[in-house]
Every structure is written in C-alpha cells, then in structure tokens.
Amino acid sequence: MQPFKALTGIAAPLDRSNVDTDAIIPKQFLKKIERTGFGKHLFHEWRYLDYEGTKENPDFVLNKDPFRKAQILLARDNFGCGSSREHAPWALSDFGFRCVIAPSFADIFYSNCIKNGLLPVRLKPEEMDELFAVADFGASGLIAVDLENQVVGAAGKKFRFQIEPFNKECLLKGLDQVGWTLQYQDKIAAYEEKLMAEKPWLK
C-alpha cells in the first residue's frame, strides 16, 4: 500500500451529503476482477451525459479545469454510505485522489480508505464551509494536508483533525495489515485451541 504522509493539492468541491458508493462507482462497473481501472467510471452518472460515458457533463465539477487534476475531494455529511464495495476507494484513488475531507464518513467506506492509502479527514461542518470557499479558487486555492501533524491548512488557516493512532500508523507506513496480524499467529492458534475445548460446535 502506498503510504500517505503529506500533500498539497487542488481540492474538488462536491457539495453534496450522503454521497453513496453507488454514486461513486455504479454497479455496472463492479464486474472487473482487478483493483485497477475504476477511475474512468468514478461518479459515472453525474460525470457523463450518456450511459456509455462518452459525453462529459460540463456542469460536473470533475469535468472542469483545474479539478480534473484534483487530489483532494471535499464533500458533506455521511460520505461513502451504502454498499461495502471497496471499488469506491479504488475508483477515487485511480482517478488521482489521495484524500477525502468531509464532516462524516460511513464506517465501512472509512476503513476501506485506510486499507488503500486514501486519507479520510473529518472536519467540522463550519470548517468544511471554509474549505469549500477556498476550493472555489481552483488552482490558486490549494489545500495542504499533513497527516503526521493532523492538520489541514488553507488560506492561512489551520484545522486540526482526529484520526485513530493505529489508522494513522497504517497510513504513514503503508502497512501490510495481513502481515501485521500474522505476527500474532501464536495468539490466533491459542484462541482456536481454547475455542475447540469450550465451544466444540464452532469448529
């Protein structure tokens, strides 16, 4: 997994709440068996005027310069709600996003981001308003995200954010989480031995 340390970049303002994973990546694109190539279908139904995705919707934020090159996405409450599909963070990453900032995220989406080096940042709604105002300046409205210090900076202001220490470590180091757990193989084996003795029907 690609580590995330710090980033200064263009932020695309997606001024919507309850952006669900069907909107992020519609189900007709979930049929691949790889993790790559989902970026061109990101926000498909908002981004294109036709089902095939050949005609861009000129009103959609990601079809406007400079947001085509955005690395940070701004949104409103409950971003990533709905299905557990990890295709959602895969599509965001594949498009070029490294960070999503919103007042709140759906649980499963949040952990899926952490597993993919995509930093989800929670800020207060009023702080989001300030970031949305900055993002409207496009290429001259850059936003800086510093995971080590847990700070988002924009237009001379700094906003602190919270992240669980373990998630932070995973992102900073780009940790292989399966590998991390396997260092506790003995504990898993001991648990299973106890399970067999106490709850034999669970074998």
Binding site: R35, S84, R85, I108, N112, E164, Q177, V178, W180, T181
Partner: peptide, 19 residues
C-alpha cells in the same frame, strides 16, 4: 459488512482488526 481488503485479511488469518 467489510471491504475486499478485509475479506483477504479474514481469509488469511480468520481474524479482523477492529476498534
């Protein structure tokens, strides 16, 4: 519900990381 990376984690370890 879990994501695909977690599916992989459970397959490999029969455990999951949680808070």
């Amino acid at each position: 519900g879990i994501g695909t990376s977690e599916v992989e984690h459970v397959l490999a370890t029969q455990t999951i990381q949680q808070k």
